[in-house]
Design a protein around this nucleic acid. Sequence first.
RNA 1: GGGCGCGUAGCUCAGUGGGAGAGCGCUCGCUUCACACGCGAGAGGUCGCUGGUUCGAAACCAGCCGUGCCCACCA
Length: 852
Amino acid sequence: MDAAQRQRLEETTRYDPSEVEARIFAEWMEGGYFHPVAEGDPEENFSVAIPPPNVTGVLHMGHALNGSMQDALVRMNRMRGRNSLWILGTDHAGIATQAVVEKELRKDGKSRHDLGREAFVERVWEWKAEYGSRIVEQYKRLGASCDYERERFTLDEGYVKAVYRVFKQLFDKGYIYRDNYMVNWDPGSHSAISDLEVENREVEDSLYSIDYPVEDSDQVLTVATVRPETMLADTAVAVNPDDERYGDLVGKHVILPLVGRRIPVIADEHVDVEFGTGALKITPGHDPNDFEIGRKHGLQEIGVIGSDGRMTEEAGEFAGMTAAEAQKAVVEALRAEGRLRAEEPYVHSVPFSHRSGERIEPLISLQWFCRMDELARPAIEVVERDEVRITPSQWKRVYLDWMEEIRPWCISRQLWWGHRIPVWYCDACGETIAAEAAPERCGSCGGELRQEEDVLDTWFSSAIWPFATLGWPDDTPELRAFYPTSFLTTAREILFLWVARMIMTGLEFPGRVPFRDVYVHSVIQARDGRRMSKSLGTGIDPLQEIDVYGADALRFGLLAMSSTQDVRFSDAKVEQGRDLANKLWNASRLILLNAAEVEPAPRPVTVEDRWILSKLERTIASVTEKLETYDFAHAVQEAYSFFWRDLCDWYLEIVKPRLYDGEEEEVSATLLHALERVLALLHPTMPFVSEEIWSFHPAREGHLAVHAFPVADESQVDPAAEEDVEGGIGLTQRLRAWRDLAGVPAGATLPAVIDGVEPPGFVARLSRFEFDGVGSEPVASIGPVRVLDSDQLDAAAVAERLEKRREELRAEVERGERKLGNEGFVAKAPAEVVEEERGKLERYRNELAELS
RNA sequence: GGGCGCGUAGCUCAGUGGGAGAGCGCUCGCUUCACACGCGAGAGGUCGCUGGUUCGAAACCAGCCGUGCCCACCA
């Protein structure tokens, strides 16, 4: 430490993260610590793939929590000397990004169609160049030690190559196919979306009962529906085969009102006899259930609602109306014809687009699908066998249940921004060709080719993130050194969307699981317990928290908040982190400014020295174990408690006289040693403040980011010293409490004598007693301490205090007697438990006898 | 409809068979030579309810009440 550093340490009584963080981060980057060489193998190396945030994204609390956890483990392993890679990058986020740029265009009164596909995509790239690295910069603010030199993007050149290779191989295996099928049509993004991008919401609709006249009869068949406008596309009415009411109608026909179409009455088990009249109108073109039934019975599929959400020509007089307008018109027309039997309010759940928020319109359209059964099978097995461990374990069951029910994945999207599906059509001969690069001409007839217009679901490319970012399909040094990655932390909402798909593609392509451990973390809710969300306005901005409290404070706070269950965001925990950073700074000032010039080393002289070294090593062992098992909350709280309570409140107060003395080298060596280990232990969770303080430490040779992570030294654990010192601490606390309650002025020193075992030397000083004191009669007895009367004492308060203690003791004695008087307890409880109770009872009895 | 959670101090949460804990807040006292983002002391809880198992239950079991999330094609 030079003179300027010493001066800074002397003058700065408060740790200021805003002054420190950017400077420290720049030093790390300059050191190149986050950019490991691609050497060694995945067993000895450590690697993590960040869940790639959307390019359109800004850092939210979920990123911050996830980042804090991953960084803690990456930094810990880097400090252990492992070649550690945290791969970072962004996701092109098809729908979201296209929407942002389309919104920009709309401001100029334009749509993407005005520009055309090529110019529009060009425009999105420009947008990406300008704003796409925002979130990457925000990860730096958090202190995330990602390899910023290996940043990837799901649409960069190498990544596209990987996506096309995957598509081609799945196509060749017959897993990827094109089909006219019922999909979730999102009128908002004008595209099909997958089942996982749909969320169901409770909605209040009306349930209409409509009479369908039976052909050549006076009978009517009444059906119930919430979507009367789809009746225009009805191609059957179904009843349950066991429904006696309708047995004779099956095989007959009804006449569809308004349309006049003659449609069959069919029997199908799907129909619930209890619901409504037990007759179900079948609309294969606009309802997923009806679609299934329709295919089973070979029914005609009619579409009356188009992809623009308007009624098609098939809807006859209703053509051109929106679906909502058509609903009203159809209801009116039915009423006019006397076919509307009832209309009642009805609450049910309805699919909405997770992307645009609009109500899903189920439609039949020509889309690309990927069959999942074959891919899922091995991905189920590796989780069953715990080759991929999911923590907490209840998510394993959730994963397996979903995987076992997996259905084909609709992978095509009617967007322009994304991986354009690598399929070419020959209009001349009808050939369909999948290829990794654009073929010149049709292989069969030599005709012109035209590429598929649709792009792939963004999650199709995310699914290969762990190996595509490392250079797959090429055999790169990165892939050899860092795949499989070491672990993954994630929010449970993307367990299916992302995690399951990575496991499937990892097994199918590189042939190995992408990670061994999946830790599913809790969700941090808003302060009021609602979801944090932009649309609700309940989001809390992590960057603002960093501005106010510092990155270390936020990281500590989030880790302390995290748990296996969802928790509300706690400002108090972030403040606790800020206070800890400040306390670290100030305790370090005390040590660094007063320590003698010695080598840091454990050099215990007193029992207190042995005690703090023992607690230090215990804490290192425990915190390390908790970090390794993803128990971040307990890890940081234990580190906090050791540092604040044991080290600062007690040890530093105990050794101050020796430290100020400057004579005793041993205590300086021990303190510098403890400080070094505490800083290293805390570095993975609070990297900035620990690095900053380390820059003043005499043992510093390089950055703490690459300093050795402490390994607990069991030989320092000393239970006898712990018992002695903790006994002294307990006595000190009782003496202080007695003073306070006896009304003794804070600054006064009280006379007392010791009757019994001499307590550790610090007790007298820290409780402000003088044990060889001169005074008159003892007026109180606290452990071995006999407090002597003096004019500092308030006789009435002392008496009151004494009586209070007696009462406490009487209660304790009574409790002990009752417990030991219970024959069952004495007979059946373990002997050591009974012994312990006996000992306690005896002690309480003795103390009570002394006080009487 | 199925599944998974949660209900502990005023607040946010730990604790999962042997005497109720933390942080914040609150009260009282401290300009004690690292830190008032500090130091010392204290108050505060029939551990949702009802039964059961056990010598012993906040913890284990059953039921109930309240509450949150995920999955699911009853119109």
